[in-house]
């Protein structure tokens, strides 16, 4: 069993991983006449956190969906660990890429623990006959699944919450549960779609710590986020999309200081919201920094 228990942060891990995990080459996605993603190149190396930013409607989530097999790109290719993946969400997960959703998509009437156990589905093998006969191997696997799920709940800071129905969890916990469920698939690359949307400053800080913890355990992470403070705190590299095209790609510092990025946001109709959103975050961060 390829259970990779997230280990305690090692200071080296940030610099070790230079192996290319994900490589998207000139990905284009068209819906009828609309070009949602236009010729975007994108690479992720192991052990790094890459941010994906851009004003609303820039095609971030569409690009995400192309990466995770929900959409088949109109042209271009996505390689994961050197392999071209079939555009099926399941094969993508099996290959080692897991995601969360912008609007939380937990299984509402399952408990938190069961949600995480579903994440183990693709790493376990008991089929119909084994499940009916219940031999020792089946029991061992089921026990391991449960133990791993409990462990993961603990890891994301939800110790003892496993018995609650997902629908009844507070918002922040639902986001964390989604991450735990994604981690249960033993990914090499984790894609987070707005992991702090709707969170208060304290929850945002916790999420940030969690993401660092995950990165330090050796996973590569791609984050879509609107909260600029969050992105620039977190990411090694940032890709900014505007109207489906790459505006700029570089280190957090480079992107942060690029006037075109600011222009893209100011120019967008909902720039006020974005600005105030990051202001709140800034206040929250102040005490921490």
């Amino acid at each position: 069993m390829s259970s990779q228990t997230p280990t305690v942060a090692s200071t080296e891990s940030r610099h070790v991983g230079k192996e290319e995990i994900l490589a998207a080459r000139s990905v284009t996605m068209r819906f009828g006449g609309l070009v949602a993603v236009d010729n975007v190149d994108f690479t992720v190396h192991s052990g790094e956190i890459v941010g994906l930013i851009g004003p609303n409607g820039a095609g971030k989530t569409t690009f995400f969906n192309c990466l995770t097999g929900l959409y088949k790109p109109t042209s271009g290719e996505v390689r994961f660990s050197g392999q071209v993946l079939p555009p099926k969400p399941r094969s993508v997960v099996v290959a080692g890429m897991a995601r969360t959703f912008q609007n939380i998509r937990l299984f509402p009437n399952m408990t938190a623990l069961e949600n995480v156990m579903v994440g183990r589905y693709c790493r376990t093998s008991a089929m119909a006959l084994t499940s009916i006969l219940r031999g020792p191997k089946y029991r061992r696997e089921e026990e391991a699944t449960r133990a791993r799920a409990v462990e993961l709940l603990d890891y994301v800071g939800m110790k003892g919450q496993g018995g609650h129905l997902a629908r009844n969890l507070p918002y922040g916990d639902q986001r964390r549960l989604e991450i735990a469920r994604a981690l249960a698939t033993d990914p090499k690359l984790l894609l987070l779609d707005e992991p702090t949307a709707g969170m208060n400053p304290q929850e945002t800080r916790q999420a940030e710590e969690l993401i660092f913890k995950i990165r330090d355990s050796g996973l590569a992470i791609v984050v879509i986020e609107h909260d600029m403070r969050f992105i620039f705190n977190l990411c090694d590299r940032v890709l900014c999309l505007v109207r489906g095209k790459t505006l700029i790609e570089g280190t957090a510092a480079e992107v942060q200081s690029d006037p075109r990025v600011i222009e893209a946001y100011i120019g967008s109709p909902d720039s006020d919201d974005e600005a105030s959103g990051s202001d709140v975050a800034t206040e929250g961060e102040a005490g921490n920094a």
Partner: peptide, 15 residues
Amino acid sequence: VAIREDEKAAEAMGV
């Protein structure tokens, strides 16, 4: 159960 609850999410989680 996962399929009943949310088929798309189940697929995306490797079910």
